[in-house]
């Protein structure tokens, strides 16, 4: 089928392009031996980055997302995969101080980056203040969106502190306040189907006020 041919070509094209741009800053690229069948070329790329303050090195399939690098390769499963499409926010991590959906970037884009995951914020016996506030205010139920909510919440308060405006910011010149509406607007990329929003807002307000 013509369609098959198109897909093959396009995959090769995409891979080649991706590899070429990655190669500019990398010493070595390993290619898996091409299979005799219809399959595409597979490439792995070495990656060095910092995760929760630790230097990590991985040799990754170029298609591996930052999310899967964390969950499957580093077995840091606190970061959740809810949709793999940037639609739910469960995979939120903090990269170089800014929150991102880790499912929406390839791991190999993160050479040299500093990644903080939920495990890096605190542990069960040494909770980060935001984690402790979530426990106190019952800012979760099933817990699956929770690490993403907490990573977002920490980054949101930082954004407000830095005066980065949002859609609902009324006064762009004055000192920005962590108001309920400001926090809710900024947190809206993190879905909680259990519906803990009201409690999350209270947890964030407590931390913001501290």
């Amino acid at each position: 089928m013509a369609q098959d041919g198109f897909l093959k070509v396009s995959r090769r094209g995409v891979l080649a392009g991706g590899v070429a741009s990655a190669a500019a800053s990398r010493a070595s690229i390993a290619f898996a031996q091409e299979n005799s069948g219809a399959s595409a070329v597979e490439a792995t790329v070495p990656l060095k980055f910092t995760v929760n303050g630790e230097d990590r090195q991985l040799d990754l399939d170029t298609r591996t997302t930052l999310l899967d690098a964390l969950r499957e390769h580093l077995q840091l499963t606190g970061t959740k995969k809810g949709c793999d499409h940037g639609q739910c926010g469960a995979c939120t991590v903090i990269v170089n101080g800014e929150r991102i959906n880790s499912c929406l970037s390839l791991a190999v884009q993160h050479e040299g980056d500093e990644v903080t995951t939920i495990e890096g914020l605190g542990s069960a016996d040494r909770l980060h203040p935001m984690q402790a506030a979530f426990v106190k205010h019952d800012g979760y139920q099933c817990g699956y969106c929770t690490p993403g909510q907490i990573c977002s919440a920490v980054a949101v308060l930082d954004e407000i502190r830095k005066g980065i405006p949002s859609h609902v910011t009324e006064d762009l010149d004055g000192a920005m306040q962590p108001s309920n509406v400001e926090m809710r607007e900024r947190m809206s990329g993190n879905i909680c189907r259990c519906g803990a929003y009201s409690n999350i807002a209270e947890a964030m307000a407590e931390v913001a006020g501290a």
Binding site: R71, Q75, T77, G78, K81, D138, G143, Y144, P147, I150
Partner: peptide
Amino acid sequence: TPRIDGPLKVSGAAPYAAERH
């Protein structure tokens, strides 16, 4: 009573199905 499983959930340590390496 705060959830006894709370610290595991908020720290990402509670193991969900696909995470049980």
